[in-house]
Design a protein around this nucleic acid. Structure first.
Lengths: 234, 234
DNA sequence: CCATGGTAACTTGTTGCCAAGTTGGCCGCT
DNA sequence: AGCGGCCAACTTGGCAACAAGTTACCATGG
């Protein structure tokens, strides 16, 4: 195992244990090199790892500083419930922003999930979720026009799908079986979620069904920042 | 965004799309530097990222090669079922190895999970799970001696807890609510699971209850390699 | 003709030094 | 005494050159 990884882990351990306060300055590359008897490039690589992992920020001429790592949110992984509602109930400073609404081309997987035919029109609606002004999750819903005839006109204004369903007379929901995976963010996801390329994202693909009629209301893909959530499966 | 991240992503995209075969040699640092008009150190950093993420292996004097990335296993995240059984049913070349069995000191969280008193003795049993000879998951069970009086003597031989429960007359199980989180592996976890420090691990903490009596049979912590699994929540 | 050794041209790995940015202390001026 | 400018000593950022490893080709000897 490389020296820079060992040093990085030592520094991570110190940061996590509270040895340094948020925004406190860490030892310089030269100090680390001297302390661990390694060339400076090794110390630099250790700090680069810390930066990539999100523990520090660095500024030329100034030094390396502990980044503000926000506390984790416990999230109950149950479908059929409004994410917006969950966050508000937990008392977070929560905000949801609609970032796009557009029609998609036929896609067999999504159309099958929506249990709709090839001639239907399907809209992709994205909401970015913020807590304390920081983006923490990206929610994408696929909605069939045959179920929601006004979706083309209304989609761009939606920030909570469950509020929308309520307004259309749907009040009780079931969740489809979910597929869950973990991956590193794409360039666009990094931009939207404001994270480095090494923040794993938990992707949850699922669907929402109206309990009364059995109609598929949406198919969803949700991307949660793993560094901001831990999850409870009921 | 840095040039080396862009280049790394370009290379990842090419690897994932099948442009290069497994073990095929990739362009040298100098070739990348020439192609993208960057200094060689930038090309190197791109390759270092690929190596850390597990896409390539590198050898001085020879070059960089595409690493064999094994296909993902779909895993149904339901407790109360034997992991060993699931893997065997899927037809994988599966092996489970017991790697330790030892008594632990009193730990409030674990003892509370086991719903047992401070005077009980609790054993920590670890199994490492292999598919095709590669470690893919680490299972840790906490077992109370008051429920399994022979655990001290038998623990070191156990490779499947469910087989053990069956042999003790337990046949139907319920799962406790689970806590799920994602983190990067520690040094020991990397050693056990044979992965780099950037392979996210999905940690699933749960418990197993005997359906008939309601007794808590075990508390578990399971670490799955995220690069080897995608998960289905029923 | 075949086998062996040497070397040039490549590969990745390492290091020293220069570049760019920051800041505190000192000096000069008002 | 106070303020502003300059500079040395530090910080991180960047890069060319050297080091170490590999391999294919060529020359030489048996």
């Amino acid at each position: 195992m490389s020296a820079e990884t060992e040093i990085a882990e030592r520094l991570i351990s110190e940061i996590v244990s509270g040895r340094y306060n948020v925004h406190e300055r860490l030892p310089s590359e030269n100090e680390i090199a001297g302390k661990y008897k390694v060339p400076r490039i090794t110390a630099r690589k250790a700090y680069e790892k810390l930066e990539e992992l999100g523990y520090v920020y660095r500024q030329q001429g100034k030094g390396s500083y502990v980044k503000d790592r926000l506390t984790q949110i416990e999230l109950v992984l149950s479908g059929g419930v409004s994410f917006s509602q969950k966050m508000l109930e937990k008392g977070y400073d929560f905000e949801s922003r609609n970032i796009f609404s557009r029609e998609i081309k036929y896609n067999k997987r999504i159309y099958d999930c929506l249990e709709t035919g090839e001639k239907d029109r399907v809209f992709k609606i994205g909401r970015l979720r913020f807590i304390d002004g920081q983006p923490i999750a990206l929610h994408i819903s696929y909605i069939a026009k045959s179920v929601f005839p006004d979706i083309a006109a209304e989609g761009a204004n939606l920030t909570s799908m469950f509020s929308y369903y309520n307004s259309k007379g749907y009040h009780e929901f079931l969740s489809k079986p979910s597929l869950l995976s973990v991956s590193f963010p794409t360039k666009l996801q990094r931009k939207l979620l404001g994270c480095t390329y090494l923040v794993p994202l938990l992707a949850l693909q699922s669907g929402c069904i109206d309990k009364r009629t059995g109609a598929v209301l949406e198919c969803t893909k949700i991307l949660y920042r793993c560094d901001r959530f831990s999850y409870i499966m009921p």
